[in-house]
């Protein structure tokens, strides 16, 4: 059985770019994402002996990040670093091919209006490529909940995208 010491800085560092991508898309800016990922890495190192199976490191890190995000210990307390969703949409659009930029901007704006719960489920399945079972493990909910939440998130995003962005009532959640 592999020793818990196998989980060292290097093993965790290999997952950091992916964790940070997920965190940035989830919270809508890089500064808060960096705080969240840093807290996640520290917590993982402090608790690394709790991970029995090193092959599950990726999912385990996502679970830690999820719990930190839900409890919102640090990153929500930040002052002066909140980036409006429009800035993040422009930022994200710049990293995509020029022909896609307008559509990506609109998409990221609509995505930012979703609840955190809906953003999470769409990112874990759509960007991180997790199976329903893996998502259920990360979020610590039954698979049935994953599936019903995913269905609601998709329908809500469809309404936001097809209804245009000027819908003040929809912003209030």
């Amino acid at each position: 059985m592999p020793a818990a010491d196998d989980i060292d800085d290097r093993a965790i560092a290999a997952h950091v770019p992916r964790l940070r991508r997920y965190a940035a898309a989830l919270v809508g800016n890089l500064a808060d994402a960096d705080d969240l990922v840093q807290d996640c890495v520290e917590k993982a190192l402090a608790n690394r002996h709790a991970l029995r199976d090193p092959s599950r490191l990726g999912g385990w890190l996502l679970s830690i990040l999820h719990n930190l995000h839900v409890s919102g210990i640090r990153w929500r307390r930040r002052r002066g670093h909140e980036t409006p969703v429009e800035d993040f949409a422009d930022d994200v659009a710049l990293s995509t091919p020029p022909a896609d930029r307008g559509a990506v901007r609109d998409f990221v704006r609509a995505f930012g209006q979703l609840s955190e719960e809906h953003r999470r489920i769409l990112l874990l399945t759509g960007v991180e490529g997790l199976s329903y079972r893996e998502v259920a493990e990360v979020l610590e909910v039954p698979i049935g909940t994953v599936m019903s939440r995913l269905a609601r998130a998709r329908e809500r995003l469809r309404a936001l995208l097809e209804g245009g962005e000027e819908r003040p009532l929809r912003r209030i959640k």
Binding site: R20, R21, E42
Partner: peptide
């Protein structure tokens, strides 16, 4: 939607990391 989610957010993985997210990581808790 699913395709667009990946297209929009996948490139975020290429953003340079700040030093605090690179090893050796600090271990403030310990």
């Amino acid at each position: 939607q699913r395709t667009m989610t990946a297209r929009a957010f996948a490139p975020l993985i290429d953003r340079p990391l700040p030093d605090r997210l690179k090893p050796p990581f600090s271990r403030r808790h310990r």
